[in-house]
Design a protein around this nucleic acid. Structure first.
Length: 279
DNA sequence: TGTTATGTTGCCAT
DNA sequence: TATGGCAACATAAC
């Protein structure tokens, strides 16, 4: 499930591979034409050929590829999307829905088992609007304890839900929220506005720690994530709670049985001793 | 064989 | 405005 570290991994690999290349042709899966969209009245598949690719950047879980003529591509992988760079002669990969041939003999292929992901041809105004609606980037100085305290102030929603809210913090998903809350020793149901400055400070440290660790390991692959070379990430073995707790697995810190909850519709794993619910 | 959990964003209801 | 629920979708694991 691509969250910030997985999208960052894709960005770092994709950028040097495609920078400066020109799009020769575009093919969209006729069974899933919605995978590629554009502004009203613009046919993206006819506009893209001839444009060149500039820098690849990331905002939250979105990839943004600068194009010539002031265009941009905004890509969101959602849950099962993959962005691959392969030789033009490579047969269609599994669940492939879009291919863009480049002038160096490679293709960019977009594949998505569950068809939630999108590739959008966007104007600079679209990119600015995206930037405005997303919250703070967690790996920048924008995420200070004071800033997080301000963002959480007065909120009664569980801290887990607040952390998943992309309007507040951009890029966290289910995996890294559970990991960060475990590291910070905070119960996921704690109302966000109830956290004191010590807890908030610990949470900021934990968020940045788990994200940096995952980026260093090129992301977490549970079932679907692959980088543009088709390689899995190596972070799964560094996870301490996510994906556990289904069969009474022990807390890696204290040995107590991990517990499982559903919060905001998302499976949540935590240690009842290391992350006590305060009364 | 059918049922359920999976998880992201956006839309809708409260 | 804040929050919760659900749809979009395909598959794996019961």
């Amino acid at each position: 499930m691509p969250e910030l570290p997985e999208v960052e991994t894709v960005k770092r690999i994709l950028d040097p591979l495609i920078m400066g290349r020109t799009i020769i042709s575009v093919e969209v899966d006729p069974d899933f034409p919605g995978v590629l969209c554009g502004p009203d009245g613009v046919d993206a598949s006819r506009t893209l050929p001839g444009l060149s690719l500039q820098r690849v950047s990331r905002r939250g879980k979105y990839l943004i590829v600068g194009l010539s003529d002031l265009w941009h591509l905004i890509v969101h992988l959602r849950m099962t999307g993959r962005l691959l760079v392969v030789d033009h002669d490579t047969p269609a990969v599994r669940f492939e829905h879009l291919r863009m041939a480049l002038d160096d003999g490679n293709d960019i292929r977009f594949a998505d088992q569950r068809k939630f992901g999108r590739v959008e041809l966007a104007t600079i105004e679209d990119v600015k609007a995206l930037d405005r609606r997303l919250g703070v980037e967690p790996l920048t100085h924008g995420l200070s304890p004071y800033r997080l305290q301000e963002l959480f102030r007065g909120r009664k929603a569980p801290v887990k839900s607040a952390m998943l809210n992309q309007h507040l913090i951009a890029g966290l998903g289910n995996i890294y929220v559970d990991e960060a809350l475990f590291r910070a020793g905070i119960h996921p149901l704690t109302p966000a506005g109830d956290l004191n400055l010590i807890q908030i400070t610990a949470l900021v440290e934990a968020i940045q720690y788990v994200l940096k660790l995952a980026i260093r390991n090129q992301g977490t692959t549970f079932a679907n994530f692959e980088n543009p070379y088709g390689e899995a990430g190596g972070n799964k073995s560094y996870l301490r709670v996510y994906g556990k707790g289904r069969r009474g697995e022990p807390c890696p810190r204290c040995g107590a049985e991990l517990e499982r909850l559903v919060i905001g519709g998302r499976g949540t794993v935590y240690c009842p001793l290391c992350q006590p619910q305060e009364v």
